[in-house]
Simulated scan of single mutants.
Amino acid sequence: MKAEQWLFWALAIYLGLMSPVYAFSTWKTQGEVEIIGTVVLILTFLFLVMIGAFIALTGRRMDARPEDRLDATVADGAGPVGFFAPASIWPFWCALVVAMMFLGWIFGYWMTIIGVGIGVWAVAGWSLQFYRGDYAH
């Protein structure tokens, strides 16, 4: 977890340094601090600190992963990657529904409502595809 931890810490340090720079630069150009951008930068800094601290504390309680050990070999990281569906039409239907919902912004809200209705069916089909048919378990 060391690489992930340092990624969040580095981003937090950057935003911690850039928040006052942003506030000062908007104050100098506009005569007052642009408050929304400053608040967003500060909140993002705080969220990155929170995630970095969580990963640091969690990483101390866990055993070191092969990526974190200097004496690890490639074979230490071998193992099952995960289970993937052999063939599924459901991602196609979900993508079609998302396209339909975005086209609803152009052609009318009625198309978005129809897309949401079909989307419930498509997401349910994708989520439950291994509970029926040839691949049921």
Rank of each mutant, 00 (worst) to 15 (best):
T112P: 03
L96M: 15
R132K: 06
F84Q: 05
T38K: 06
A64S: 06
Y131I: 07
W126V: 07
W110G: 01
G37D: 01
V33I: 09
C94M: 12
L46G: 10
R132Y: 01
M111P: 01
T29R: 12
S88A: 13
M62H: 04
D76C: 05
I113D: 03
K28G: 03
W126H: 10
G104T: 05
G104W: 14
A78H: 06
A136M: 08
I35E: 14
L57D: 11
I114A: 15
A72E: 02
I114N: 09
A53H: 05
G119W: 06
L48E: 06
K28M: 10
G133I: 10
A124F: 10
F45Q: 04
V97W: 12
I35H: 06
M62K: 10
D63G: 01
T44P: 02
A78Y: 04
A95D: 09
T38E: 00
G117V: 06
F47P: 00
V98C: 10
V98M: 09
W90L: 03
L128W: 11
A87D: 09
S25V: 06
V33Y: 05
T112A: 15
F83G: 12
V49L: 13
G77Q: 01
A56L: 02
F54K: 06
A124K: 12
D76K: 02
L48R: 11
F45T: 03
G79Q: 08
I35W: 15
L46N: 04
G108I: 12
P80V: 11
L41Q: 05
L70S: 10
A75M: 09
I36H: 04
G52Y: 00
W105P: 01
M111Y: 00
K28C: 01
D68N: 03
Q30F: 14
F83S: 10
W121I: 11
P86R: 14
G115P: 13
P86I: 13
V74H: 04
F83V: 10
F83H: 09
